[in-house]
């Protein structure tokens, strides 16, 4: 994952305007209101690595909703972060199918051997929980940035982290 640029009001405004225009295009007058909000938040996060507090009034102004409206939505969805994550994000599936295949052991190993607990960052890697990646026969599964991983176990995790460290240094 590339380094994300500093927040820039003009870039943000352009992203917001583009998503609003796209929503208008498709939904016509039904797009009045917050229709473009999720696409906007996704676009901002894709661009800046997070949806920073400075973006909230811009989004509210663009959509003509309140800042509170935006904050409410932003905080509802687990995908959105208000501060940038590390260079890499590992989302480890903790749902039942992966439980049945040993994901709890992998999580425990990440904590004990690598000091990584869900929500924590270490060595340019942020660990998060996720509940189902649709790879339920090949678990434990995880998403490293946008790459789906399968059949994780302790040694696979060790190799993965080592690889990230090497590519990062």
């Amino acid at each position: 994952m590339a380094d994300t640029p500093e927040f820039d009001v003009r870039v943000a405004d352009a992203l917001i305007a583009a998503e609003i225009a796209a929503a208008r295009d498709f939904y016509g007058e039904d797009a009045n209101g917050a229709t473009a909000l999720l696409p906007i938040l996704h676009a901002l996060q894709a661009r800046f690595g997070c949806v920073p507090a400075e973006a909230v009034p811009l989004v509210a102004e663009g959509l003509n909703v309140s800042r509170a409206d935006v904050r409410g939505v932003l905080s509802f969805y687990h995908d959105f972060r208000e501060a940038p994550a590390a260079r890499h994000v590992l989302k480890l599936c903790r749902a039942e199918a992966c439980q049945a295949r040993g994901c709890e052991r992998v999580a425990a190993h990440l904590a004990s051997a690598h000091g990584l607990r869900p929500g924590q960052t270490r060595d340019e890697l942020t660990l998060e929980n996720v509940y189902c990646l649709g790879n339920c026969t090949l678990g434990p599964a995880a998403l490293l940035d946008e790459r789906l991983l399968a059949n994780l176990d302790e040694s696979a995790v060790d190799a993965l982290i080592l690889g990230l460290k090497e590519s990062g240094s």
């Binding site: 917050a34 229709t35 999720l38 938040l41 996704h42 959509l63 409206d69 939505v73 969805y77 687990h78």
Partner: peptide
């Protein structure tokens, strides 16, 4: 439209709320 990490949005009314740009 892409979701944003909310299992509840698989519930149809919650999904509609989400599509309308609201909390799911």
């Amino acid at each position: 439209r892409v979701g944003a990490g909310a299992y509840i949005c698989g519930e149809e009314t919650s999904l509609l709320e989400s599509l309308e740009g609201r909390r799911g």
